[in-house]
Design a binder for these strands. Structure first.
Lengths: 366, 366
DNA sequence: TTGAAAGCGCTAACAT
DNA sequence: ATGTTAGCGCTTTCAA
């Protein structure tokens, strides 16, 4: 590997002169010297070692990104936006880690980041508390957390960026109500995070406003082992199967997110229920996959790129400018994208007709 | 930040003793000393700086991973498997980069990796040639490339791991043929990579063996701008729309991959064609999303975890053991997962009946 | 305008 | 069994 020494020797100057050109202090030398050094750099294909630079400066152009699972398309999507912005705008690369929402893994990742000299991290976690990385912040790390509000009353140095989850769920629920649905459900998974409870609140608020409080229920599909990818869709499927069993079931369901909605639709179909004729479904996220499903999923589109940019900006600035510790940015620019998974609820007549139609073949078969 | 010096002082020993315990050379000291050092490490919460370590040793526990786009669920899936194995087995973290199949971006990423001291990289690229990172190999980097064979006749130091793409496409095609399909198509995108041409060969081979050579066609859906995520599904959708226009169209389609198949199904549906009654579709990859689609996608499951492990093993070993330069590992443990997107082709009678049924309303409308 | 030298935190000879 | 010390490649005073 060629070093700054090699370049200095080749250009017949001292290492400090080479260092000066590397760091843009070109005014301190003759044009001729500068030219010689640049020539040497090119000739030797010299790339300064970030290692040595950061050992000296304490800064490394690496951004830590912690996600529940990079196999989850939503996190891949956010991650890509973060990555390209961090790279183009600040020249930072991404050090990524999947944590499966496991506190041990998260802590271990933070330790490693610290050891690697990484001072800026974006965390997508939703773990109940942030204590395990408050300590990282004490060590001088700039942290911004996604989809999780600041703990009320507790002043933290962690920045917070999130969509308006309350609004998202409210929009989705209102859409269902607007189409005539009265028996509503919100499908979620076990474990209450801030974003989940905000969504549930939004769901209830919309139901309440329509006088449907008593008919709005929250469906908990159970725990997630390896949170993040296929699993949540599986929970959706299980929830659907369970709903199908009921004598009286919701006609309109808001899903925690698009992946859950996709699982829900698969399960509903498996159970012989049609979407949207028998049950309507609305997702939240706006994954490109929502447009591909059959029926195409009506969903609340989150401003992913904008949020990603905000997170990067914040995490890059905060260390320098020691910004206000109460930083919290909520994105309310949500848009309900209407597709095909919502229709008016079945009327009593149509439901009866359907049941009859379904039972006929069974009777004739024997 | 606490340093090895602080620990040494705290334990009243020299830095080398501390270094010795850090590096497991505990036999060289009294148990009592060891205990004191360990106590000091714990008391000070000391974490050795990887920076300084690697500056000294030239080794950094970071694995570079280059993907076309981390927003593509397939790459997220592979990436996660790589990540967890590299972490659990070797204690390495992942430095990831999306390249959008752009040579400039790939080269820039390699340069950065080198500068960061990263010596091991896994590349998922399919770019036509590998020259832009052959130079990285010269600089002592261990690289393994996914889904791309070694260039014949050219001895490279780059390792190659891939599924048996020929077999994958053959299996998919044979399945269609076995169900009675005779008018076959392979749906792909513009740009010929090694893996794509292997799939096309497999498709043709299966058709040939069934005497269907003349009825097997390759459908090129056009170029990809920002390759990797939603885009390929869009190409699938466009291809479907174009197929629907034809007087005589294929009844069985093998898609380049699952995402393309999902787009194909969406487009077919949009055009009023039913899957699988009118057209059957088979994917390749085995994404969890294939199980969620409607109809659920029949696909060839790739041994993703096994391939990920093989890549990590290889890239970790190769530097030390200077393994054979001709390394190429092809995974043939493929499994066709039957779901719902394949049925026998429509008979002439059923097609006629359908057409009549479809045209009736059109005639009565005016 | 240029160079010498100290030192970032650690490892690993080489001493003691 | 433990300590001293010379770097790893770079940045940055401070001198010349």
């Amino acid at each position: 590997m060629t070093t700054i020494q090699d370049v200095a020797r080749h250009a017949a100057v001292s290492v400090s002169t080479v260092s000066n050109v590397l760091n843009g202090r070109t005014d301190r030398m003759r044009a001729e010297t500068l030219a010689r050094v640049e020539a040497a750099i090119r000739a030797l294909q010299f790339r300064p070692s970030k290692l040595a630079q950061q050992l000296k400066t304490g800064q490394t152009p690496l951004l830590g990104l912690l996600v529940p699972s990079m196999a989850n398309p939503m996190y891949g999507y956010i991650g890509r936006e973060i990555e390209s912005f961090a790279q183009e705008r600040f020249g930072f690369r991404l050090l990524i880690g999947s944590t499966y929402r496991d506190r041990e893994k998260e802590s271990a990742f933070f330790e490693d980041l610290l050891a690697h000299g990484v001072r800026r991290v974006i965390v997508i976690s939703s773990l109940a508390d942030e204590r395990h990385f408050e300590s990282a912040v004490e060590h001088g790390m700039a942290v911004v957390s996604y989809d999780r509000g600041a703990t009320p009353g507790k002043r933290s140095k962690v920045g917070h960026v999130m969509p308006d989850n309350f609004l998202a769920a409210r929009l989705a629920t209102e859409h269902l109500i607007g189409r005539g649905h009265r028996r509503l459900a919100f499908a979620t998974v076990a474990g209450m995070t801030m974003s989940r409870s905000a969504k549930i609140d939004g769901f209830h608020a919309a139901a309440e406003a329509a006088g449907l409080r008593a008919q709005a229920q929250v469906l908990d599909g159970g725990p997630l082992d390896e949170y993040g990818d296929s699993v949540i869709a599986e929970v959706g499927r299980a929830t659907a199967l369970q709903i199908a069993q009921r004598a009286v079931r919701p006609t309109g369901i808001v899903a925690l997110n698009d992946l859950m909605a996709l699982g829900l639709m698969a399960g509903l179909r498996e159970a012989g229920l049609r979407v949207p004729q028998d049950v309507s479904v609305v997702g939240i996220d706006g994954l490109f996959l929502a447009a591909l499903s059959n029926p195409a999923l009506t969903t609340v589109q989150l401003p992913v790129r904008e949020m990603a940019h905000a997170m990067v900006e914040r995490v890059m600035r905060s260390a320098d400018e020691a910004g206000d510790p109460e930083y919290e940015q909520v994105f309310a620019a949500l848009r309900l994208v209407e597709r095909e998974s919502v229709a008016p609820p079945p009327t009593a007549a149509s439901a009866r007709a359907r049941r009859a139609g379904k039972e006929k073949p069974e009777k004739t078969v024997p």
